[in-house]
Design a protein around this nucleic acid. Structure first.
Length: 487
RNA sequence: GGCCCCAUCGUCUAAUGGUUAGGACACGGGCUUUUCAAGCCUGUAACGGGAGUUCGACUCUCCCUGGGGUCACCA
């Protein structure tokens, strides 16, 4: 049997980083086993309907390179669906759920409930006060059959509830082992709502079965409702898929990762200048680690090394500092040309125009200093226009103003005689300057420090060789001259 | 509160009865060096507690404690 996994989000309009990890693990397993990775939209709550949510979700999957094999996809901006077991949007599957609901009803495995939400609320309150577990009291299960038929006949609003059988339910979780719960703890869950829509519990079981899902990989928050699903599989006479409940992603205070304590949407991270690959790499390692001593993994390595049984059981704090480091690693590994393309949208958004050739040079010499793509916005300023700075920083700690000034004059005079072709390579600029220093019997610090500051306007920056190379001869001479006046 | 899940450095984790408890981020020191970054070397830092089982427990069992999740006509 070939592996079929699925990611089944509700279309809230954004992709949570926890959802990204869930989708990723589903994807990894499917790829590794040469199986199929499916996307299904769980939009059975009409009150939560967000227009355009599926489109933006798909666009996000496109950016993180996790597009599904089956399910909704974007073609020229229009949502279409591919696959043999569709539709993949639950709101388009209503007749299917109705049919299976009828089957359950006929078998006595489910029953109609006419209770008002007021009565249910009251019941819950009473149970809370009495410190009992809050469960439906089966009031409508005891209604006379004739009465039920009569009320159904006049279309009285009602829901369909699962009649939880006596006994115990246990299931094997690939990550945690066997989990058992007494059915007495399981509520007579609503399966079909009064508006004719199924609840999650009904839809997920019917769809996973019909879509031949072999592995249900989802968040830990679903563990407590899994017994309901297992009971349903049994009532339908179906084999349940394998379950794997992923540990939660946590805030620094160990609570469930929430918007309140920082960004949770993948979109937010991309907007802040994190690379999709870095985010995927980072999130992959939250709860799982393929090798003991490696941090950076290409997607193909993750596919190869992924192992459900190696996933951790305890929740993982989402550590921004480590994400920053990882993102920096990915930025460093980009070529300057790649980086230019990645960084461009951020410059555009900031309203900054930079010459393409100059930007590529800036990326070349600054990429080891960048943690996020947005860093480029501040970096670029010093190259595009002559920065203003306190002339005092032109003076090296081991020298004085007069010495620094003399060395600036010296280097300016030297460079003015140097042919412009020297500026074609960093190494050539470097050897020219170093040769000058040596010929004059000067020391590196006395010359290099003021030169570097004159070119960058910063106490900390790339080397003067790199700066001169990036700036070009004209601008280099201009900045040196200006610094000589200032000091 | 009931039920369920979980428990190694501050954080992400390795270890599957025998290790000086390893790696990574962060933090500190050093090397390199004109500065910063990168890189390299290095330091501080963990098995929640108590009983067992065993020649021997981070590893197995139980209890306690702590943390988390879940208790909707939301997913």
């Amino acid at each position: 049997m070939s592996v079929r996994t699925r990611f089944a989000p509700s279309p809230t309009g954004f992709l949570h980083v926890g959802g990204l990890r869930t989708a990723l693990y589903n994807y990894l397993l499917a790829r590794q086993q040469f199986g199929t990775y499916i996307l299904r939209i769980e939009d059975t709550d009409r009150e939560r309907f967000v227009p355009g949510a599926v489109e933006s979700l798909l666009r996000m999957f496109e950016r993180v390179n996790l597009l599904p094999d089956e399910g909704p996809r974007l073609a020229d901006g229009i949502v279409t669906q591919t696959g043999d077991v569709g539709p993949y949007v639950q709101s388009e599957r209503l007749p299917i759920y109705a049919e299976y609901a009828k089957q359950l009803l006929g078998a006595g495995a489910a029953y109609a409930c006419f209770c008002s939400s007021e009565r249910l609320d009251g019941l819950r309150k009473q149970q809370e006060i009495a410190k009992l577990s809050t469960k439906y009291d089966r009031h409508c299960l005891n209604l006379p059959a004739e009465e039920v038929l009569r009320r159904l006949a006049v279309n009285e609003p009602h829901v369909l509830r699962l009649r939880v059988p006596e006994g115990e339910t246990s299931f094997r979780d690939e990550i945690r082992g066997t989990i058992t719960i007494n059915n007495a703890e399981v509520d007579d869950q609503v399966l079909m709502k009064s508006d004719g829509f199924p609840t999650y519990h009904m839809a997920v079981v019917v769809d996973d079965h019909l879509m031949k899902i072999t592995h249900v990989i989802r968040g830990e928050e679903w563990i407590s409702s899994t017994p309901k699903h297992v009971i349903l599989y049994r009532l339908f006479g179906w084999d349940a898929p394998l379950f794997a409940h992923l540990p939660l992603l946590l805030n620094p205070d160990k609570s469930k990762l929430s918007k309140r304590q920082g960004d949770v949407a993948v979109e937010d991270y991309l907007a802040k200048g994190y690379l999709p690959e870095a985010l995927v790499n980072f999130v992959a390692l939250l709860g799982f680690n393929p090798k003991a001593d490696q941090e950076i993994y290409a997607i193909d390595e993750l596919i190869e090394l992924f192992d459900l049984t190696k996933i951790n059981k305890s929740g993982a704090v989402f550590d921004q500092a480590k994400l920053n480091w990882m993102n920096g690693q990915y930025i460093m590994r980009k070529t300057a040309t790649e980086l230019v393309a990645l960084v461009r949208p951020f410059l555009d958004a900031a309203g900054k125009t930079v010459d393409a050739a100059l930007l590529e040079k800036i990326c070349t010499i600054e990429k080891t200093r960048m943690e996020r793509l947005t860093d480029i916005v501040a970096i670029v300023d010093a190259y595009v226009s002559v920065p203003t700075f306190d002339p005092a920083i032109l003076v090296w700690k081991k020298a004085d103003a007069a010495d620094s000034r003399a060395n600036l004059v010296g280097i300016r005079d030297h460079l003015s005689t140097v042919d412009e072709t020297v500026w074609s390579e960093i190494a050539m600029v470097e050897s020219s300057i170093k040769a000058y220093i040596e010929a004059k019997g000067l020391s590196n610090g006395n010359v290099l420090w003021p030169t570097r500051v004159a070119l960058s306007g910063r106490a900390a920056s790339p080397s003067p060789f790199e700066l001169a190379w990036a700036l070009g001869k004209d601008e280099t001479m201009r900045r040196l001259a200006s610094a000589i006046v200032e000091i």
